[in-house]
Simulated assay, not measured.
Amino acid sequence: MMLAPTLACVATTGASAMGGPASRNDITDIQGLRVGRAESASVKTGVSVVLCDQPFTAAVDVRGGGACTRETDVMNPGGLVETVDAIVLSGGSVYGLAAADAVTAALGDSGRGYALFDMPGVPASPIVPAACLYDLANGGGKDWGRTPPYRDLGFAALEDAHRGGPVMIGAHGAGYGASAGTLPGAVGSASWRGEDGITVAALVAVNCFGSVTMPGQDDVYWAWPFEVGDEFGGRRPDVSQLADLEDWGAAKLNPGLRTQTTLAVVATDAALTRDETRRLTVMAQDGLARAIRPVHAPVDGDVVFGLASGAREIESPRPIALTRLGNLAADCLTRSIARAVHQARP
């Protein structure tokens, strides 16, 4: 069973006298990460690619019962390969996995990939994990027969990533045909640069069952305590309306199966082991719970990927430093979700 996800990505770099969003307030504030996107207006779907300029240490945390994924086993503890070359987030449920095939082929053609030995005539194997959200019932033309558009969209999104530039927030890429409860879904991103020069950032494609806004206050986001400035509207709640815990607000009230998932990628420029990267990824899942209610439901397919470039050493004691990074990753993911939906709304 393949469900529709919210996709996200978190990372760290930089330096500043006081903490605050880095220059772009998105995941491209992380040196070595680029993001590309491609969409099909007729199909109402799209693809996002997070491209690593060099291999990043990787991990994954899957909490959805119906996640649609590729190459997640390679990131489990004890696996042979500890790094990835790119991560693909796509619409299209199982059909969307073809986008990762395209990215793999293109990176392999350029000489990227893992090889146990350098052997003439034997190609390297690019490591490209992927996760897909379900947007098959959104009214777009899905009568593609044997030629779904996702391979072509994967090539186009990778080409867009090579061009660089800031993340396009709103109805773009993997979030193009998504829905967030009863509101439009979208792609969002946010970053935070700490006093110590480490930057954390997130990228997310939101396609959740739960509501991102408060009951009876559809212009107030659950993520409001984490807002920086007025990056998603600056509205604050009327606390007198928060008494009914059974009210889910703008959630999908009668969801069909295979219709929702939250996907995310979290990344850092810190020198983390694979186990430490996974702990960062696990902590970042809290960002979903802060911004979406309910979340991690049986009808969701939530996945969070984690990335670490290894460019910056973290302070000792390492567990405390990692705790701080994981918490910032969750905060950036929370903000990214609200920024995505806010930008996509009419």
Results as ranks from 00 to 15, higher is better:
V49G: 01
L33I: 15
T69M: 05
A105H: 15
Q54C: 06
M119D: 02
I127D: 05
A130E: 04
G145E: 07
G145S: 10
P148D: 00
S90Y: 10
F56A: 15
S40I: 01
E39A: 07
G111I: 12
F117Q: 11
T147C: 07
G145V: 05
P123T: 07
V50R: 13
R70A: 14
G65N: 03
A98P: 03
E39F: 09
A157S: 13
L51H: 12
T72I: 15
S125V: 13
R63L: 15
V62H: 00
V81P: 03
C68N: 12
G139F: 00
V81I: 15
C52P: 04
G66D: 10
G66C: 10
S125T: 12
S42I: 08
L51S: 02
G46Y: 03
A38P: 10
P126I: 10
E71K: 01
Q54F: 12
C52F: 08
G113V: 01
V122D: 08
G79S: 15
L116R: 12
D101F: 12
V43G: 01
P126E: 12
R112S: 14
S48K: 08
T72F: 10
G121F: 12
G64T: 10
L136K: 08
T83I: 04
D143Y: 04
L33E: 09
D135G: 11
S40P: 03
A105Y: 09
G96D: 01
P77W: 01
V50E: 07
G140I: 09
T147Q: 14
G92K: 13
T104A: 13
V81H: 01
P77V: 00
S125P: 02
E39R: 07
S110G: 11
V88R: 08
G36I: 03
M75K: 07
Y95V: 00
A137V: 06
A157I: 09
P126S: 13
G139Y: 03
A98Q: 15
V74R: 04
E71L: 06
G78N: 10
G141R: 14
G111H: 11
D109M: 15
A58L: 09
P55E: 09
T45Y: 08
A115M: 03
T83L: 03
D152V: 03
D73V: 11
G65M: 08
